[in-house]
């Protein structure tokens, strides 16, 4: 039999004891029910409380299950909620950058566009909400792969076909690009998906610092880049926007 971790087993016993209906128990009830010293039980309860799995009633001092347990079972962020929270910030990003803005989430083995703001130049544009973009070549996709382990494992199974002469197809080169993304907090796609088009994206986190999507701009390479590198003011605007949306979702400052 594989080795088990005793303190986890004890924590599970505490949770089971508190589960079921509106149960509130005091420290001595819990310690005697699971047959442990009060000090040990208190240590377990304090740790569970820190993680939000257990709450202590301030008046009686009794313990009950915490709200975090409910959230565990119901944790995914609704993409329409994400769009509603991002609306103001993405509008502002489009205005400040002069480019079109996209908000993407991981869907199967690609990036699903859940929100799109037109480039503010009055030209005819078509709403691309619902479109799928490649995970391995776009800035939105690279950000997801760099921060979300699920996206990372999905992309490993994708055949990285060259979409342009600039597409990164090799496994090592791709991993290096993801490392760079994590190190600087944003990703770029300079003509790796579409000829003549560059994009920049940064991650959106929820209140538990989980990566829930990526937001970025896309535009003509001549406007987005200068002397072959992405213009720093565009990077700053994209990262500001990603931070603002994350803050709106409850993530702390970072």
């Amino acid at each position: 039999m594989a080795r088990t971790i005793q303190s986890l087993e004890r924590a599970a016993a505490v949770l089971r004891l508190l589960a079921g209906g509106e149960r509130r128990l005091g420290l001595s009830d819990i310690s005697s029910a699971i047959g442990l010293a009060k000090g040990t039980t208190h240590g377990i309860l304090r740790t569970l409380q820190q993680e939000g799995f257990v709450e202590q009633d301030p008046a009686s001092g009794r313990y009950q299950l915490g709200a975090e347990l409910l959230r565990l079972g119901n944790s995914y962020l609704d993409v329409h909620e994400l769009r509603a929270r991002a609306l103001v910030w993405t509008d502002d990003l489009a205005r400040s950058s002069g480019e079109s803005v996209y908000l993407g989430v991981l869907h199967q083995q690609g990036v699903l566009i859940v929100h799109h703001v037109f480039r503010p130049d009055d030209s005819r544009q078509v709403l691309e909400v619902g479109a799928m973009h490649p995970l391995y070549s776009t800035a939105l996709g690279k950000v997801l792969c760099a921060y979300d382990p699920v996206a990372h494992s999905e992309v490993a199974e994708v055949e990285r076909e060259p979409l342009t002469p600039h597409t990164v197809t090799g496994a090592d080169a791709f991993e290096t690009a993801l490392e760079l993304t994590r190190a600087r907090g944003w990703a770029a796609d300079v003509e790796e998906t579409w000829e003549g088009v560059a994009s920049v994206a940064a991650p959106v986190h929820d209140r538990r610092r989980m990566p829930v999507g990526s937001v970025g701009i896309t535009g003509a390479v001549e406007r987005v880049c200068q002397d072959g590198v992405v213009r720093p003011e565009i990077v700053a605007a994209v990262r500001d926007c990603a931070r603002a949306v994350s803050r709106d979702l409850g993530a702390g400052r970072f």
Binding site: V88, D92, L93, S96, S97, A236, A237, D240, D248
Partner: peptide, 10 residues
């Protein structure tokens, strides 16, 4: 809304 959009090019 306590935060305001505050990107560079105002």
């Amino acid at each position: 809304m306590s935060d305001t959009p505050s990107t560079s090019s105002h």
